[in-house]
């Protein structure tokens, strides 16, 4: 029980509740159910992306190309919709998942087979993917009137008062809880990130495991690409530019250790929600959105400081007297 209370997840839940309570004390409308659903829906892309990024960071890698993957896959989906307006949405979703996964596989292959550091690989593909958008679209926008109503309507469709976009975040979270906890691949993420040398002894292929983490993060970036373009009814070169930093921030705040091997899906979700609530609350409270960056930044620094302290506390106590001294 003490373990649960001490965990990063519990701490974040507490912080989020305090934050919401503070905002609600001045602006009760913020906690109206309809507005909370709005906040969740608004944060859903970040939640889905943070879960994908968490898989990658767990394996001691990082995926800087997620936002570019999102924009490229979003553009591909939009252009397919323009060319074949009658194509059913499930097909578009499968295309988005597959195309995003393929882009993730490019990162994965480079990290696995050429053993290039992930930060270099994904910094490269970050630029390349954006470049490809420009090439395939000629720099032109795909606008709302060119997209079919079914294409743009899907993420906004209402099920039990909650938009499909938010449902998809919930479903993604549920699937990845199982992937992380109950599949050999999920456990291998922790093994590879926690102790890569030991993973080899356990018969785990480190590079291959990292490859699959990149495929999963790419897949989720691709899915979000379609949802993003459909929700905002526009696709162009620069959508979600710089968003990769927010994704990583959500993971770090959620307690996913940048050094790999430690963190939970719940942590990534709570980290994303924390940023999402701040983003949505600032205009309500009347603080300039520019402060949002400063607040996010401060949250990251505090989170990292927490992570570092948590790591240090592990120091063993060797002398009985010292042990008694710290207890008394």
């Amino acid at each position: 029980m003490i373990r649960i209370l001490k965990s990063r997840e519990a701490l974040l839940v507490g912080v989020i509740l305090v934050l919401v309570a503070l905002i609600a004390s001045r602006f009760p409308a913020f906690v109206a159910p309809a507005n909370l659903v709005n906040v969740l829906t608004d944060t859903s892309p970040l939640i889905i992306l943070a879960i994908g990024q968490a898989m990658v960071i767990l394996t001691r890698c990082i995926d800087l190309s997620m936002a570019s993957n999102l924009a490229l896959t979003g553009m591909v989906c939009a252009m397919i919709n323009v060319a074949y307006p009658g194509l059913p949405i499930p097909v578009i979703i499968v295309v988005a998942l597959a195309f995003g996964a393929a882009l993730g596989a490019v990162n994965g292959i480079l990290v696995w087979k050429l053993t290039i550091p992930p930060i270099v690989v994904t910094l490269g593909t970050l630029t390349i993917f954006r470049g490809i958008i420009f090439v395939i679209s000629d720099g032109a926008w795909v606008n709302a009137h060119e997209m079919s109503p079914a294409f743009t309507g899907f993420p906004r469709a209402d099920i039990l008062g909650v938009p499909v976009l938010a449902w998809l975040a919930i479903i993604t979270a549920a699937i990845f809880f199982v992937v992380i906890a109950r599949t050999p691949l999920g456990r291998a993420f922790y093994a590879v990130g926690g102790n890569p040398d030991a993973a080899v002894y356990a018969g785990i292929n480190v590079g291959k495991t990292q490859f699959w983490a990149f495929v999963l993060s790419g897949m989720l970036a691709g899915l979000t690409g379609y949802l993003w373009v459909a929700r905002y009814s526009v696709a162009y070169v620069d959508i979600a530019k710089g968003f990769e930093l927010e994704i990583i921030a959500a993971c770090v705040i959620g307690g996913i250790a940048i050094a790999g091997g430690s963190g939970t899906v719940m942590g990534a979700i709570l980290g994303a929600l924390f940023l999402g609530i701040i983003k949505n609350a600032l205009p309500v409270v009347g603080i300039s959105p520019f402060w949002q960056l400063a607040i996010s930044g401060a949250a990251i620094v505090i989170a990292v400081a927490f992570n570092a302290r948590a790591g240090r506390r592990k120091g063993r106590i060797i002398l009985k007297r010292a042990e008694a001294g710290t207890n008394g």
Binding site: T183, P184, R187, Y190, G194, N195, D197, A199, G203, I204
Partner: peptide
């Protein structure tokens, strides 16, 4: 040193050859 701090004792023992249950998931 060839073990994994973030996993449980049982997971450390069975990593790489964990018993599988339904849908190929690890039978915890």
């Amino acid at each position: 040193t060839v073990l994994f701090d973030e996993l449980s004792v049982a997971e450390n023992i069975f990593i790489g050859h964990a018993p599988r249950g339904r849908f190929g998931l690890i039978d915890t």
